[in-house]
Write a protein that binds this DNA or RNA. Structure first.
Lengths: 359, 359
DNA sequence: GCTTAGCACTCCATTCCCCTGAGTGCTAAG
DNA sequence: CTTAGCACTCAGGGGAATGGAGTGCTAAGC
């Protein structure tokens, strides 16, 4: 798509104005801009052409123009300028960026709420593994009443646990033996490396508690295979702040798809190329989101984990500002999650960083 | 407040009709009911009196009547009849009542979603302790890189864990000694029973790892003192399905208060007397909820824990049906959470019941 | 004395219509 | 190629008219 510089200027102006007013933009409004020195008639001609090209749309004959999805896409790819966060904005972002919890999952949930609050849009956050997980340590603790608790430490200091009911009577000594065997044979292996033969071999050396091996390892494999953490959505109702969702029915459609569909389409919620990705209107797979846009950004958590935060809003979204804010989060969240940062950690009062899973 | 039988009949009819239609009820509508054999004029007279008594309201002169908050309250206290769930309803409740997760907190969150879905209203779920918690077992596991993971088993098979950075170098033997000391001196004690002196004494016998004692015990005390689990809200946007919230601004007010205020007012979200409690309109402490009602119900989780589920909706709510549904949940959730139910467990395919906290 | 038919009255909600104003596309002149 | 001018379109807002549901009151009936 080839646009003349003037066409670009007009398209950018239309996007910018429409994003902030939510009203179709007329030729006069553009002609009135300070750095525009051609008449509204000229602009009308250009606008007609841009409409022809599919970059603009007209709600009705006697209205101004609004950007089409393709128009937004062009804007994002070629016209958008880096938004510089104002001092006030930076400050309030910085102030908000205090994660109270020390529990990993709880932190992710707070991240979602935070991003939602700071962008005034529904947001989501999710953590996913980049590396293959391995078990680091097995611990079997008797919980009385014929059951034990399996505490499983994974790479990345994740801790999982599960109550297991004992199918047979097992002594403490048996449990200790089993723990020892598991810790010597089953640690540092990815899910793929844990073969049936290996399991078999371990069962044979596990002594009286051998019957527990399948129970323990089933759970372990389940944990190792789990690529994604929970999907945390927050601030769905902020969608109602957007004029395009003043119609409750529309809002509900989108919000419901957030609650349900996206969960089923997890992969779609992760950016594919680059740290930031935009899905404009119909670019969204989910039909319910065809009039909405998603901006998602990746951030680094360390320990072979990566996080993704995203916001959902009307296609008429301030992509530049949202990107800037998400970028701020991505940068600083990464730092906050890096528990090994120690004293270098730029943000104060973070406590322990990322503890294992908990609560 | 003394009402004649006929007045009661009329009030009940008005509530029932209004609840299902959301339209003010006129005298004719009542006269048309099958078991009403007095004329609309009589009903008008009675309605005037009920209005006088403050049990009914009139949106405007030429409209029918709607129940006032006091009217709802009277209805709940004296007129409401047990709603018998239809076979279909029971079936869909039963079918929905499958908690996929085996993690406690995750289960509570699912309970919230479930209740919301089945009542078509925003719902919340929260767990709280009835008994004082005590530590059952301490486990310290080296996590490499100069840090350890504390795994703490509490009464009720709750498991908590936390990553602790070591201020000093500690050998595995030191850790084992510390574990042993903690397990022999610090288990089965409530938060109150863990005195400064006791801590002091333990520190003195803990050997080289004594400096870890405060770190470990601070976290332990924090866990022991925590009376409530997370507050899980779900389905906020279902409020939009209610005609009284077609005005987005009103819905937002309520939804926002759900997200924020209620968290701060935790105690208010637990029923005070009896297993079920109704808060009608202005009976709500939060000003934002003064036009809404809350129905909350307690259920038993076992292990010294209790759960509370509640729904939030317009004062025009089908209190009887909601109560029946919540009751169904309360009864069956209780059973599902009782992990000791074993084979008697009425609902199939529940897995392990309530495992410790996790993820 | 309670109940009810009849009736005048009130007032909300809907519809219709008109009008205004913003914005366009086109044409012709610069 | 740009721009002034102009006829045309159409959404949205502001009454006015209309219909209808519901009430309160009065007077007659059981």
């Amino acid at each position: 798509m080839e646009l003349t510089p003037r066409q670009k200027q007009i398209l950018r102006a239309i996007v910018d104005i429409y994003v902030s007013t939510a009203e179709p933009v007329g030729s006069k409004a553009i002609a009135a801009l300070p750095d525009v020195d051609f008449s509204s008639a000229t602009i009308r001609n250009e606008m007609a052409e841009l409409t022809q090209m599919g970059l603009l749309e007209q709600p009705h004959t006697s209205a101004g123009r609004i950007p089409s999805p393709a128009g937004y896409r062009f804007y994002i790819d070629e016209l958008m300028q880096d938004y510089r966060l104002s001092l006030d904005e930076t400050k309030s972002l910085h102030d908000a960026l205090q994660l109270k919890s020390q529990e990993f999952d709880e932190m992710m949930s707070q991240v979602g709420k935070l991003v939602s609050k700071m962008t005034d849009l529904p947001a989501y956050a999710i953590a996913s593994r980049q590396d293959q997980a391995v078990a680091k340590h097995f611990e079997l603790v008797s919980a009385g009443k014929g059951s034990i608790i399996l505490v499983l430490m994974l790479s990345g200091d994740e801790v999982k646990n599960k109550l297991i009911k004992l199918p047979v009577t097992v002594t403490d000594a048996d449990l200790r033996l089993l723990s020892a065997v598991l810790n010597s044979s089953m640690t540092d292996l990815t899910a793929d490396e844990i073969t049936a033969e290996l399991l078999d071999k371990v069962s044979r050396t596990a002594g009286p508690a051998a019957s527990l091996v399948p129970l323990v390892m089933d759970y372990t494999l389940e944990c190792l295979r789990q690529q994604h953490g929970d999907f945390h959505v927050a601030g769905q109702m902020r969608l109602l702040n957007q004029p395009e969702f003043r119609d409750v029915a529309k809002a509900r459609e989108v919000i419901e798809s957030l609650d349900e569909d996206v969960l089923a389409n997890l992969p779609a919620t992760l950016p594919k190329d680059g740290p930031v990705q935009f899905l404009v209107g119909p670019e969204n797979v989910a039909r319910e989101l065809k009039d909405s846009s998603v901006v998602m950004m990746r951030f680094d958590i360390g320990d072979g984990m990566q996080g993704t935060v995203g916001v959902v809003g009307p296609t008429r979204m301030d992509y530049a500002k949202i990107t800037a804010k998400l970028g701020y989060f991505a940068e600083n969240l990464g730092r906050m999650f890096q528990k090994n940062g120690g004293a270098e950690n730029a943000l104060p009062a973070l406590g322990e960083g990322k503890p294992g899973a908990d609560e």
